[in-house]
Design a protein around this nucleic acid. Sequence first.
DNA 1: GTTCATTGTCATCCC
DNA 2: AGGGGATGACAATGA
Length: 630
Amino acid sequence: MKYLKPWWSDGGGLLHLTILLSLAGLHLDVELDLYLLLPPPTLLRDELLFADSQTNPAYALSSFPASGGWGRADHLHPKGREPEPEGQLLREVRALGVPFIPRTRVDAWLVHSVAAGDADGAHGLLGAAAASSAGGVGASADGGSQAAPGGGGDPRASPSSPLAAGEEEKAPAEPTAQVPDASGGASERHLNATDTSFSLEAFSQLLSSQPENSPEGISLGDIPLPGSINDGINSAHYNINFSQAISHDVNLHEAMLLCPDSTFRRDPIARTSQPQEPFLQFNSLNTNPEQTLPGTNLTGFLPLPDHQMRNLTSQDLYDLDMNIFDEINLMSLATEGFDPMEVSHLFEEPDSDSGLSFNSNHDSPSITKSNSSVCEGAIGSSSDVESLSHHALEGAVGGYCPESSKLCQVDHRSGSGFHGDLAFQHIFHNHTYHLQPSTSESTPEYFSWPGKSQKVKSRYLNDTSLSRDERRAKALHIPFSVDEIVRMPVDSFNSMLSRYYLTDLQVSLIRDIRRRGKNKVAAQNCRKRKLDIILNLEDDVCNLQAEKETLKRERAQCNKAINIMKQKLHDLYHDIFSRLRDEEGRPVNPNQYTLQCSHDGSVWVVPKELVTSGHKKENQKAKRKGERRN
DNA sequence: GTTCATTGTCATCCC
DNA sequence: AGGGGATGACAATGA
C-alpha cells in the first residue's frame, strides 16, 4: 500500500512528497522534498496546472499560494489541449539534475498506476490523491475563490464533488468544511501508517469495479477516504475525472498579465476596453523605447495600484508632471548622445510649449501622433474623465494642450512601444485642433488654468519656463544643467570643464552661469539676511520701547513717592513749628526760622538768615575747591 | 500710468 | 591669484 501526498510548500518552490509504504505490516514513511526551479515564466505552465488543480479538486495536490488567484478558470486555456508530456521545461530541469516531478507526472503516475492494475499502489495513490485534493481545495478556497467570483470551483468537475464551490455553499456540512488549510494543517501533516484506518478491501473492490483501466475513464467516485487523511471526509463520494485536470494548457502571456502583484493585471477584454489615461502621461517617462512594454513602464515609475492611480487628482498629475519634466529636461541635456537639435527644437521655439506649435512644427509624425493621442484621449476615449488633469482636458477641448505637448515630446521617444498595444491603439488616431497657433500671446486667452497662478501659467505656456541662462546654455548645447553648473563643487566643476571638449564661448558661458547662479543665491541669502536683520532690529526697537515704558512707569512711581515724602515732611515741619515757643512763650514764625539737624542728631532752631549766609559760605568754599581741582 | 515688491544681475569689496 | 561670499545699486517684471 502506498500513499502519496504531495503538496506545495514554500510558496510553490518546494514540492513536498510524503510516501508511506505499508506493505505486509511493514510501514515505511518516506518524505521527499523536491525543489523546483521556478524561474518564471518557464515553469508557469506547470504552476498553472497546479493552479488549475485549485479549480479541479481531483488534482488539488498543491496548496498553491492562496493570494495568487490562479484558480480562475477564465485565466486558463479552454480544455481539450493536453499539456506536453515532456516539455522543454522538464528537459531543462532534468538536465540540471534537479529532482523534479511535475504535477502532471504525478497525476499521470497516479492514473497509470491505476490503469496498470496495481491494486495496492493504485488504491493508495488514489486515496492520497483524493485526500490531497481535499487539502488543495481547502487552500484554493482563499486564492481561487477570491480571484474567481464563482468560488473557484471547476465547472468541469463532477457535480457530485463536494469540493466544488457551489457544493460547498449548498452543503456546508460536507467534508470540505473540515478540510484543513493547506498552508498550515494539511501541508504540515505527515501521513503515517496508523493514520490509514480505511479498508483496503473497499479500495480493491472499488478499483476492480472500474470497467476499464483507462485513465480517461477513471472515476474516484465511491472511494472511501481515510479519515485521518481527509479529516472526516471518509464517507464522501468523489467523481473526479483525471483527464480533465491535466487537460488544461495555459497561455503564458495571460499568465504573466495575471501576475497577482501586478498593477496592470486585468483580463484581455479589460485591458483593451479600459485605457488608463493617466498612465499615458506616465508612459512618457520612459525614454527608452526598448523598455517600453505595456504595463511595465507604468509600474516601473509609479508602482501604484490601479485604484490609487485613478485616485490621483489633476493637481497630483500636474505637480508630478512638472517635477518629472524638469528632471527629464535636465536629463536630456546631460545625456550623452542626445540630439542637441532635437532638444533645441523641443525647447527653443517660442511656442514649443504649445501643443499646437508642437503639432505643427515637429517633423516627427510620432510626436504629432502621441500629442494628439493624449489630448484627444483626454476627451474622446476616456472612460474616466475625472482622472484626467483639468488643464489637459481643457487644453484638448480648447485646442491647446501645453502640458501634453511637453509630455508628448518625451513620449515620442517611448511611444513606439505602445503602438502595438491594443490597449492604446484606439486613441492613436488622427486629431486636429480647431485653433491654429498664431502668437504666443494668444495662447493664454484660449487656455484656462484653474487654480494656477498667472506666473505658473506663463512659465508653462511660454519658453520663459527656462531662465535666460538655461536658454543660453541650451542654445550653445552645453551638456550640463544650470543647476549642475551652479551647485557643483569647484574641483568637480573644473574637472568637468577639462573632461569635455568645450569651446571658449561655452566655457565662458558656463563660468558666467556659475557666477550668476552663485551670485543669485548669494543675493537671495543676503536679502534674507538683511530682512532678518531688519526684523531683529524691529524686535529690538519694540523691546526698547517696552523697556522705556517700564522706566517711565517706575519714574512716575518714584516721583509720586517723593511728592508724598515731601508732603509728609512739610506737614511734620509745620507741626513742629506749631508746637515751638520762644523764650517769651510766643509761637515761632516758620518763615523766619528753620530747623537744622546736626551730625550728632540734635535739632536746632536757627534763623533763616544764618542758614542762608552759611550756605553762601559753603558754596564759595565748594567753588574754590572746584577751581583748585581744575 | 504709477507705485511698490520681488528678483536677477553687475560691480565692488573682502576673506 | 582666483574663487566665492557679501552687499549696494540698478533694471526688469508683475501685481
